[in-house]
């Protein structure tokens, strides 16, 4: 597959404005940072946001950081809502968005799976699945790579460098 030009205003089939709009994403991200700002402000007031006789209290700096974050977020929200030029166009086309999700969702499943079957088995499955779906490799290439990488990791981390990583039933079976 050859890389297509990253153009925000056109989807891959050439039709413009077909996907998530930049305005919506810009707005959502700014609202998110605004909420974070509020959280910071509230918690800073809890621990004390004043200037005591011997310098600032624990919440002094975070309090103002929160306020500035809120102001900056409102500024961006304003631009997202009322500026036509800055937020025109498509943030990501549906097709590209699907591609992004096709990496992100498996990664999420991988992380969750790590809780149950340990990082090594999960990694083997993850690498194998990824190669199968995205690379369309033959099983004769998928199986060796997806087995060898976790095994090398295992030797490197558990056996050699003695770094304990999350392990599952399989590792328990072989005594780790």
């Amino acid at each position: 597959m050859i890389a297509s030009v990253n153009d925000n205003n056109h989807s891959d089939d050439g039709k413009p404005h077909h996907g998530v709009s930049t305005r919506a994403v810009e707005f959502a991200v700014a609202v998110f940072t605004f909420i974070l700002g509020i959280v910071v402000i509230v918690d800073s007031r809890r621990v004390g946001a004043g200037w005591a006789e011997d310098g600032p209290q624990a919440g002094y700096f975070p309090y103002y950081i929160g306020i500035i974050l809120c102001i900056a977020s409102v500024w961006t929200i304003w631009r997202a809502l009322f500026s036509a030029k800055d937020v025109a166009g498509v943030f990501v086309s549906h097709k590209k968005f699907r591609l992004v999700l096709s990496v992100f969702i498996p990664s999420m499943i991988y992380v969750v799976a790590t809780y149950f079957i340990g990082i090594y088995v999960a990694s083997a499955l993850f690498i194998g699945a990824f190669m199968y779906w995205h690379g369309r490799f033959a099983w004769t290439r998928i199986i060796p790579i997806s087995v060898i990488v976790p095994v090398v990791m295992f030797l490197l981390f558990e056996v050699w460098f003695l770094v304990p990583l999350p392990k599952g039933p399989l590792e328990t079976l072989i005594g780790y």
């Binding site: 700014a30 940072t33 974070l36 700002g37 910071v40 700096f61 975070p62 950081i65 929160g66 500035i68 974050l69 900056a72 977020s73 500024w75 961006t76 631009r79």
Partner: peptide
């Protein structure tokens, strides 16, 4: 606005 927001996020 974005530079400031990013920086404040880091501090927070």
């Amino acid at each position: 606005a974005k530079t400031i927001a990013a920086m404040m996020l880091g501090f927070a």
